[in-house]
């Protein structure tokens, strides 16, 4: 049980990463692949956040004077996640616009059937 207590967030984060990666590797539908990429991003973000966590910690904001600094969680991973989320949104938006165009050209989103460019 203590194992779960110690690593539950890591397990969750990497569970999401592997689910996403598996979808990207195995599925043929572009929309599903994009969803997979998005799940993977979420897992990475969760992992980043859990690295900075401290047991029983609070948010690193000095809103009232009595908050003690020693209990604050690490602010850096939160800043990094903010950046990572925005980058993820950017990639997602671009991927969706490409999917729209791809569908207009080929009439399908199945990546197995779209093989004009090859070795």
């Amino acid at each position: 049980m203590s194992f779960l207590n110690h690593y539950i967030y890591y397990i969750g984060a990497f569970g999401l990463i592997f689910i996403g990666l598996y979808i990207v590797l195995v599925k043929h539908n572009l929309i599903k692949v994009i969803i997979g990429l998005s799940i993977m991003e979420t897992g990475v973000n969760l992992f980043l956040i859990s690295i900075g966590y401290i047991k029983g910690g609070t948010a690193p904001i000095f809103s009232t004077p009595e908050i003690e600094a020693a209990r604050m969680v690490d602010p850096v991973p939160q800043a990094l996640v903010l950046t990572a989320i925005v980058i993820g949104v950017a990639v997602l938006a671009l991927a969706l616009s490409l999917a729209i165009r791809l569908y207009q050209h080929y009439g399908t989103l199945n990546l197995r059937k779209i093989k004009e460019q090859r070795w």
Binding site: H6, Y7, Y9, Y10, S50, G52, Y53, I54, K55, P60, I61, F62, S63, A69, M72, D74, P75, V76, P77
Partner: peptide
């Protein structure tokens, strides 16, 4: 998991308000 370990993050919490003036670290 869950143990304080980072040196850069600790510095920001200790000096952040003084050096930047923002209470949200």
């Amino acid at each position: 998991f869950g143990t304080p370990k980072t040196k850069v993050g600790r510095y920001y919490i200790d000096k952040g308000v003084e050096e930047t003036g923002a209470t949200n670290i």
